[in-house]
Design a protein around this nucleic acid. Structure first.
Length: 463
RNA sequence: GGCGGAGUGGCCGAGUGGUUUAGGCAAGGGCCUGCAAAGCCCUGUACACGGGUUCGAUUCCCGUCUCCGCCUCCA
């Protein structure tokens, strides 16, 4: 089976054929940098990171553009409320997103373009739309004429007549459903000059301008959260196609993270921030939790569900550790056919993880029976599969985050090693009181000791 | 009002018109272990409700109930 993806615009799963064989171009709506990221924001980035890894695995040269909306009403309002320059506010939160992305193992995008750096491209697009009769300027604002574009509503399945009012009416709107491409400058607000007056970008325009600037008039995949389907993506598609561009060939939308059944959002105050969560679980564990459910399913956030994900991840991790400790380092091998079939089926990560766990079990059985060759093969496969999901426990990026392999670790290894030798002597003399005392002492220091056929091993109790 | 999604075993979470089990966590029983941990084996018989189609539906159709999302900024 080849890769099939669910396409919002057709509401069906379609076989993926890139416009140019061997390449895949992706544009994903990234952050509006008005505040710190919560796990809902990051989930989307992780979903597309998995998509990108899978496309790369399938042999594609992937271009991934993830934009940054750094000029927008809320950015201005919040910066003003905080008494800071709007651009500093935006830059500060952009860094917060970057940090979260990278802590959770997102590969960097090909580029992360900012809206404010692409006003030239926006002006060009507006000019094309005005020339084609699909947009008009009115008192410094520029609007897209929805009625001029019969296809409007095709992506989201909305009927133009049934759509309620639309964005708040501007002065010069000819039709209340028209949307704003460009906003005239208000006193005290940042602005850029255009042929129609000084102002700033409307929300939708930037994505069309940047997507086509980097990826061309037609590209493969465009994605974002479910809430962007209408009006944001509908409007993007309208303005780009009205201008004569083919635009996105597949539309992918991920679902929410909810809290108590409700969409996580600032206004409801039910957000879980990334830094806070990372004091409780390791980044790889959080990633496992967010990547495990299918991307189009809602995740109802709960601590118990998170803890279960942690346990599942550690099961994989401890298998790999056992293999490495007993047989030496293992490099990633090849994914199981089951895993591949699951991923090809619209990135069915739940089934893919089932394949991972089956491989873990087989590997454990092999290890217990002394079949090192099979155990190592299973471990290599597990590394490959988890790596494609970005949750390989042995991947170097997690170690960097944890600050392992330091001199302190080596010192600890030496000290613990001596205690374990002492304990082994006691055990050999069947002095279990002393042996257990030593184990308890290590445990009290946060070190878990396990006896294996090849001798004792120790690990730091996490967190 | 318009459009869309969801309701699965103790919990999380997939999937399918029947003949074979998702997977994980938790629970009970076993193996292993000085003990423990880890690991492995076994057990649980689920699919909101009411109709319909069918030889057969959790899986298709219709209706009902409940929940959620979008239509205004939103991942």
């Amino acid at each position: 089976m080849s890769l099939h993806l669910y396409d919002t615009s057709t509401r069906s799963t379609r076989e993926f054929h890139p416009a140019r064989t061997g390449t895949a171009s992706i544009y994903v709506c990234g952050a509006t940098v008005q505040s710190v990221p919560h796990i809902g924001h990051i989930r989307g980035a992780l979903n597309f990171d998995v998509l990108r890894r899978w496309l790369t695995h399938l042999g594609n040269d992937v271009l991934l553009v993830r934009n940054v909306t750094d000029i927008e009403d809320k950015v201005l309002a919040k910066a003003k409320a905080a008494g800071r320059p709007w651009w500093e506010w935006a830059a500060t939160h952009e860094r917060a997103f970057e940090t979260a992305y990278s802590e959770l193992g997102c590969l960097p995008p090909s580029i992360a373009p900012r809206a404010t750096s692409h006003v030239t491209q926006m002006i060009e697009l507006m000019q094309r739309l005005i020339d084609a009769g699909h947009a008009y300027a009115a008192g410094g604002d520029v609007y897209f004429s929805v009625a001029s574009f019969p296809e409007y509503g095709a992506l989201s399945g909305q009927k133009l007549d049934a759509v309620q009012q639309g964005e708040s009416a501007g002065e010069g709107k000819r039709d209340p459903r028209d949307f704003t491409l460009w906003k005239t400058a208000k006193p005290g607000e940042p602005s850029w000059s255009t042929p129609w007056g000084a102002g700033r970008p409307g929300w939708h325009l930037e994505c069309s301008a940047m997507a086509t600037f980097y990826l061309g008039p037609e590209f493969d995949i465009h994605g974002g959260g479910m809430d962007l389907v209408f009006p944001h993506h509908e409007n993007e598609q309208a303005q780009s196609r009205a201008a004569g561009d083919g635009f996105a060939r597949y539309w992918m939308h991920w679902s929410w993270v909810t809290m108590s059944g409700e969409k996580m959002s600032k206004s409801l105050g039910n957000v879980v921030a990334i830094p806070e969560l990372l004091t409780q679980v390791r980044p790889a564990e959080l990633r496992y939790y967010l990547v495990g459910p299918h991307y189009r399913s809602t995740i109802e956030f709960s601590k118990t569900a998170l803890d279960e994900a942690v346990a599942a991840f550690r099961r994989i991790e401890s298998f790999l550790r056992r293999v490495v400790q007993q047989t030496g380092g293992v490099e990633p091998g090849a994914p199981h056919p089951e895993f591949t079939a699951a991923m090809d089926n619209d990135l069915a990560t739940p089934s893919a993880l089932a394949a991972v766990h089956n491989a873990v079990r087989e590997g454990n059985v092999a290890l217990d029976s002394g079949d090192e060759v099979s155990a190592r093969a299973a471990a290599g496969s597990v590394r490959a599969m988890t790596g494609l999901l970005g949750v390989d426990p042995l991947a170097p990026n997690w170690a960097q985050v944890a600050g392992a392999d330091s001199g302190a670790t080596r010192a600890l290894d030496s000290l613990v090693g001596h205690l374990l030798e002492e304990r082994q002597r006691a055990r050999a003399e069947r002095d279990f009181g002393t042996a257990d005392m030593l184990r308890d002492r290590l445990l009290a220091a946060g070190i878990t000791v396990e006896d294996t056929p090849d001798g004792p091993t120790w690990t730091l109790k996490d967190n």
